[in-house]
Design a protein around this nucleic acid. Sequence first.
RNA 1: GGCAGGAUAGCUCAGCUGGUUAGAGCGGCGGCUUCAUAAGCCGUAGGUCGCCGGUUCAAGUCCGGCUCCUGCUACCA
Length: 686
Amino acid sequence: MKRQILVTSALPYANGPIHLGHLVEYIQTDIFARFQRLRGHDVAYLCADDTHGAAIMIRAQKEGRSPEALVADMAVQHQRDFAAFGMSFDHYGSTNSPANLAACTGIWQRLRERGMVVERSVERLYDPVQKTFLADRFVVGTCPRCGAADQYGDSCEACGATYPATELKNPRSAHSGAAPELRPSTQLFVRLEPLQGFLTQWTQTSGALQPEVANYLAGHFLDKPLQDWDVSRPAPYFGFEIPDAKGQYWYVWFDAPVGYIAATMEWCERTGRSLDAWWRDPRCEIVHFLGKDITYFHTLFWPALLHVGGYQLPRRVQIHGFLRVNGEKMSKSKGTFVTAARYLQFLDPEWLRYYYASKLSGKIDDLDFQVDEFVGKVNSDLVGRVVNLASRSARFVETTGLSARYPDDGGLFERAAAASEAIAAAYEACDFREAMRLVMTLADAANEYVEKKAPWTIKKDPARAAELQDVCTVVLNLFRQIAVYLQPVLPGLAAKAGALLGSPCDAWAAVATPLVGVRVAKFEHMMARVEAEKAQAMFTPEPSAPAATPTPSTAQAPTPAPATPAGGDTALAKEPLAGAITIDDFQKVDLRIAEVLAAEAVPEAKKLLRLTLSLGGGVTRNVFAGIKGAYEPDKLVGRLVVMVANLAPRKMKFGMSEGMVIAAGTDGEVYLLSPDSGAKPGQRLH
RNA sequence: GGCAGGAUAGCUCAGCUGGUUAGAGCGGCGGCUUCAUAAGCCGUAGGUCGCCGGUUCAAGUCCGGCUCCUGCUACCA
């Protein structure tokens, strides 16, 4: 039965380049889409750039151009990268499109009709100079958790904390620099509670979600009344102005997923198809691929919007984990944050497709990119086993072609054909790892056959020419079956296999019937081996900036233990220098020498020590410091540290914190600062 | 702290509803082969299945507790 399948990948944000982490998702989705096409189903693979939001607006402003220009530029970059990695989108759109506005408007009207939009006044930060409300991203200040300066109002890039903009310390407007004030703002909310029953049932019983995901939703959201969803943002905002609420814009997460529908609309328009056949017909299977970070948008809000909008709900939401590199989070300073464009400078895209396929299990687990494993898998599986089959047989039949009848092969071809359904089931379940494993056992069997038949020996005897041709006919047919099975992962290799035998590997059914009597083209290399050095080089940070190399005069200085090979400026790369401030700015900060009178771990806290600091003359301060992991409380008592003495006190879960202890560190390292001997508690730093 | 997921050979992982001597690939070691992109084939060594207790004729597989990792979250989507 021919199925109709609409496949999507999450829309990449137009604020940054495509990197190896993104590619886990796009490659996974593309393999699924290509597999379904290969099986003869009707597939639409749709994607688009996610273009709206304050982050885009700010960046455009910084770069002195319009958001539209920025977004157009990123669209070109993204699509160039995707093309290089073989993404077979049927259409690639943008959320900043008339189609998307139309689709959003339609859903919005239905929400209004059902009384699901409510207006409420919320306290928001207001820029008194510009006379405008500020989106979270337009407020900058000090992170309330880690104290990093110049962080946006929604989350901290240094420590990853998220918080309401009102908690930011020393907040300033990104427009005017003025201190924002709290003012009531009228905003629009979508009520989700009326759909609680519907969403509970859908998430728990539809089978669309992986079990862990259903559990997560049940335990985190559905166990209490669903909160209203704040879907509007005050101007200025790069996005769609809400048609019936002037000055209010849809929050980017409202119009982003609607982009799936908009992309389908554009595709239907272009190809003369019907949108309803893909979005309002239960026979169409909608499959969303996305990362675990955006789970709840796609499993609560999005189904709610679809339901109210009269659209078909996804048949499946396939959620994957994050990419790690050699067991660690991707990191710019460690060079493991590799963009698609950088990968292409070093390595072949098909290698990555295969490597990811061989690791993807369809579960939500993170996926670890290990350089050695990557090199080993590609070289031994693909070059050593698969391509090698063609390489060790094709040359023998370049002049004769394949035998006219398929010879007896002891059941090898038939067995490989019989594996078809097991392999297909693995692909269907997105257990590509299992699919690759099954295919490789076929390659093993084929190589054993070559070994046993020893065509190179047969060749020495002219009387056995027919036998030689038969053996190669078997081997090349086994190779072709494998090429077909791998086509969703390695379309390039499959195309080369098709060219070799003059018959395309473009249908799953081709594995059932051996090819006979055809000519065999001159054999050419099908895939190069990975050079381990190149893979290694790709993950090595570019030696950056001149400042890193020590000048001769400083070369005598004791060299700190070199944790990183080249450069040594990773801390600077990780946390670039902040913008210039005046001496007046600096003098606002009152830094003092303080003596640690007492220190104790806060048992309930992961990172906190409670310090009692003396500023001399009997003045003490109670300060919580996130240094539990790095310092023993006992060893701190008596030592001098530097503290921010005029930081506004802050109520924490464990008590009042009346200041902050200065420490250096990147990625969880912590190094307290000490003055030279002679300094006394209470002295100010100038 | 809450929630979720995980802990099985050096590495990456399979082990379904409990049942014979716990598996695969890679890597290691030993041999064979030389058609092939120094590819291939054969053989072999590696595991107290995180820890403790329980249920059972029988537990990696079920139950309870604990330890450690990962992610999300921390009065909030």
